Simulated assay, not measured.
Amino acid sequence: MKNRNNGTAIVLIAIGALMLFGLFAPLFGKLIGLLFPILMIVLGYYGIRRGRVVIGTIILAFGALSLLAKLSWFIGPLLGIALVIFGISLLKGKRNSY
């Protein structure tokens, strides 16, 4: 009985510490927020490898979409930079062809 209470206490302390880190350290909170989608992707991949293709694909897709949504603040500016660089390379390419 005492060992079971110790395990519960440790789990509660760990969850509370993660919640506090999320409040007091926004960067650490964002990293913890990324952990769940990454775990979904890993579990989906593991499910596909184990032969559960349908459920593994569904879990992997949800994880990938969730991760994409959480990283949209980073992906948007990268896409913008890539479009500007691609546009400049197209303009330089047209000048060299004349």
Rank of each mutant, 00 (worst) to 15 (best):
M1C: 10
N3Y: 13
N5P: 00
N5Y: 13
N5A: 13
G7L: 15
T8D: 06
T8E: 05
T8R: 12
T8H: 07
T8A: 14
A9G: 07
A9I: 07
A9L: 14
V11W: 10
V11H: 07
L12A: 15
I13H: 00
I13G: 03
I13F: 06
I13A: 11
A14W: 06
A14Q: 04
I15R: 01
I15H: 04
I15P: 01
G16S: 07
G16L: 06
G16R: 00
G16F: 04
A17S: 13
L18T: 09
M19Y: 07
F21G: 02
G22V: 00
L23M: 11
L23Q: 11
F24K: 01
A25I: 06
P26R: 00
F28V: 13
G29K: 00
K30F: 05
L31F: 13
L31Q: 09
L31T: 05
L31V: 11
L31W: 08
G33H: 01
G33I: 02
G33Y: 03
L34S: 00
L35E: 06
F36A: 09
F36R: 02
F36E: 06
I38W: 02
I38A: 13
I38C: 10
L39Q: 09
L39F: 12
L39K: 06
M40Y: 08
M40N: 07
M40C: 12
I41D: 01
I41N: 00
I41E: 02
L43F: 15
L43C: 10
G44D: 06
G44F: 05
Y45E: 07
Y46K: 12
Y46M: 10
G47E: 05
R50M: 09
R50I: 04
G51I: 05
G51A: 04
R52I: 03
V53A: 13
V53K: 14
I55N: 11
I55W: 10
T57K: 13
I58R: 02
I59F: 06
I59K: 08
I59R: 04
I59T: 08
A61M: 14
A61P: 00
F62S: 08
G63C: 03
G63P: 01
A64I: 12
A64P: 01
L65K: 09
S66A: 15
L67H: 04
L68M: 12
L68E: 06
L68A: 14
K70V: 09
K70F: 09
L71R: 01
S72A: 14
S72W: 15
S72G: 03
W73D: 15
W73S: 15
F74V: 10
G76P: 01
G76H: 03
G76Q: 11
L78F: 07
L79R: 01
L79Y: 08
G80L: 14
G80R: 10
G80Y: 07
I81P: 00
A82S: 10
A82F: 12
I85E: 00
I88G: 03
S89F: 13
S89L: 12
S89G: 06
L90C: 08
L90M: 10
L91A: 10
L91E: 02
L91R: 02
L91S: 05
K92V: 10
K92H: 05
K92L: 15
K92W: 07
K94E: 14
K94R: 09
K94C: 03
R95D: 05
R95L: 12
N96M: 05
S97E: 11
S97W: 05
